[in-house]
Amino acid sequence: MQWNLRMRAAERGIWKSAEMRRRLAAAGLEISAGKMSGWWAGTPPTIRLEELDVICSILECTPSDLMTPEPEKVDARRPRQAEAINSENENGPRVAPRFGKPRSEPPL
């Protein structure tokens, strides 16, 4: 996901992180300077839903306006089918669970 807080803030005339932080505080959300700096820099945030609600309220947007999916990054993380088959052959057979024979009971 790409985090677009700065772009959405600019669309509302908020050009500095300090101004955004003041507006969040006025809405009841106190954010540390470090956390705000990370959000403003575009670092994908760790964010609570309550925080997201306040941000969306201030910027008059939806969560989907703040986040843009990047499916190509997801695809890049998946192993290619041929690579997965080759690594399986090199590492031996896949381990599969055995059903039918339960573990023994512990001693009393």
Rank of each mutant, 00 (worst) to 15 (best):
T43Q: 11
G42K: 12
A41Y: 08
N89C: 05
P97M: 07
S57V: 02
E70D: 12
D65V: 15
S87C: 03
S87H: 05
A33D: 08
A82L: 15
C61T: 05
S17F: 03
L108M: 13
A41F: 06
W3T: 06
P63Q: 10
T68N: 04
P93K: 04
N89V: 11
L52F: 00
S104G: 13
I31C: 06
L49S: 01
E30I: 05
E105V: 08
L108K: 15
M36W: 03
C61Q: 04
M20D: 02
M20C: 07
E30V: 07
K16L: 13
A26S: 08
E60H: 12
T43R: 13
L49T: 04
T68Y: 01
R8S: 04
W15P: 00
M20R: 00
L59T: 07
C56T: 04
A41K: 13
P102E: 03
A9I: 11
G100M: 04
I85K: 11
G34P: 00
F99W: 06
A76I: 02
L66P: 09
G42S: 03
L5E: 05
L49D: 01
A26I: 03
N91P: 00
A76T: 05
R6Y: 02
D75I: 09
P79H: 04
G92Y: 09
P69V: 14
F99I: 01
S87A: 11
R23E: 13
S87D: 03
V95S: 11
S57N: 15
R103F: 12
A41L: 08
I85N: 10
E11M: 01
D53I: 00
W40G: 07
E60K: 15
R77C: 13
D65S: 11
S87T: 11
D53L: 08
S32P: 02
A84W: 08
E88Y: 12
A26H: 01
E83V: 02
R23M: 09
R48V: 03
A33R: 13
P107Q: 01
M67F: 15
I85P: 00
G34T: 10
W40D: 06
E90D: 00
W15G: 05
F99D: 00
F99T: 07
E11Y: 01
A33W: 01
R103C: 11
R22W: 14
S32E: 09
R94H: 14
A82T: 14
R94N: 13
D53W: 10
E60F: 06
E50Y: 02
E88V: 15
W40E: 07
I31Y: 05
E105M: 05
